[in-house]
């Protein structure tokens, strides 16, 4: 299957294996198409997870990772792409409705925007919070002091 995709898209896809698990690094521009193909043609009907990893020293700071599963094949695959800070991605809510909350969480924690998401708001942190905690430049003791003082009426949450 991966070989077929590789033939179709050439250098835009780099298939890799680590610890017996298949994943592929896909060029950002191919992402909408690849996700469609994986769902519609290759039966990856279950979007297990969507998450991101932050590498601040890189040019393209973020790794976006989709974990997909196919019930028919009993196979899992990860799709990875790299994007720069401030670059948005197309939402995959229309492909997998489950991506709704997952994309909201990625937005909340990393500040990555998804175009076409029906309701892109923070999900775990309160609306109005400043900062995206899972970015590497967000300290572990850091918080939005102003938000805490106004909304909780205390000096600090630490």
């Amino acid at each position: 299957m991966i070989a077929k995709l590789k033939r179709m898209y050439g250098s835009g896809i780099e298939p890799l294996t680590y610890a017996g698990q298949n994943y592929m690094i896909v060029d950002r521009s191919l992402i909408p198409e690849i996700l469609q193909v994986l769902h519609h043609q290759e039966q990856f009907d279950y979007c297990v997870d969507l998450t991101a990893v932050h590498y601040p020293q890189r040019d393209k700071q973020f790794d976006l990772v989709w974990v997909l599963y196919s019930f028919a094949r009993n196979q899992r695959i990860r799709v990875k792409t790299q994007i720069a800070d401030g670059v948005s991605l197309p939402s995959s809510v229309t492909i997998w409705p489950t991506a709704n909350w997952l994309e909201r969480e990625v937005y909340d924690m990393f500040g990555i925007k998804f175009d076409g998401h029906p309701d892109l708001r923070r999900i775990l942190l309160p609306e109005g919070w400043k900062g995206h905690p899972l970015r590497k430049d967000y300290g572990i003791l850091q918080q939005d002091n102003q938000w805490v003082q106004i909304n909780l009426g205390i000096e600090s949450g630490q």
Binding site: A19, Y23, V48, D49, T51, V53, V67, R76
Partner: peptide, 20 residues
């Protein structure tokens, strides 16, 4: 250096860990 996704059947459903 590497990354792994592994999941188990927890009482509530698929519990997965993705560790880099």
């Amino acid at each position: 250096v590497g990354e792994v996704y592994h999941s188990i059947e927890a009482p509530k459903g698929e519990l997965g860990y993705f560790i880099v």
